Simulated assay, not measured.
Amino acid sequence: MKKEVEEESNQSSTNNNKNRVRVNNNFQLTINLGDSLNLLALIAGIYVIKNFTKKRKAKKANM
């Protein structure tokens, strides 16, 4: 019984647990101007096509 106690006491009881947590919270908002230009061109194209079809229908109605 004495041997068991000696063996247990020989074990070191120190814990060197190092929990390092590094958090990098970087918020990035990127605006791509190419996307907005494509959207603007799409809206302008729809507007032009609508006006063109309206004028064409008006010409056909007058004939």
Rank of each mutant, 00 (worst) to 15 (best):
Q11L: 10
N15D: 00
E8V: 06
I43L: 07
M1I: 13
M63Q: 14
M1P: 04
L29M: 11
N19G: 02
L29I: 13
E7K: 15
E8D: 06
N62F: 11
V23I: 13
E7Q: 12
L29H: 07
I46N: 03
S36T: 07
K54S: 11
N15L: 01
L33D: 08
N25S: 10
T30R: 14
M63E: 15
A61I: 05
N51K: 15
M1W: 13
T30Q: 13
I31C: 05
L39P: 03
N26F: 05
T30L: 08
N62E: 15
L40Y: 15
S9Y: 11
N32C: 04
V48A: 13
Q28L: 12
K2I: 11
N32I: 03
E7D: 11
K54D: 14
E6T: 04
S9I: 10
K54P: 02
S9V: 09
K57G: 01
R22L: 14
I46G: 00
N17E: 07
G45E: 01
N26A: 06
E4C: 06
E8A: 11
Y47M: 07
K50Q: 09
Y47P: 02
V21M: 06
K57F: 05
N10S: 08
F52S: 04
K2P: 03
N15K: 01
T14M: 01
R56Q: 10
R56A: 14
L39Q: 10
K2A: 07
K50F: 15
E8R: 10
Y47S: 09
K3N: 12
K59A: 14
V48Q: 02
V21Y: 00
R20G: 06
D35N: 12
K59I: 06
Y47T: 10
N62H: 11
Q11C: 04
L29W: 08
E8F: 10
N32W: 14
G45W: 02
K59R: 15
K18P: 00
N51T: 11
A58F: 02
K54C: 01
N17Y: 03
I31R: 05
D35E: 08
F52P: 01
L39F: 08
A44H: 00
S9P: 03
V21L: 08
N19R: 08
N10F: 05
Q28T: 12
T30V: 09
N51A: 15
M63D: 12
A61Q: 15
S13V: 05
G34S: 09
I31E: 05
R22S: 12
T53G: 01
K2D: 12
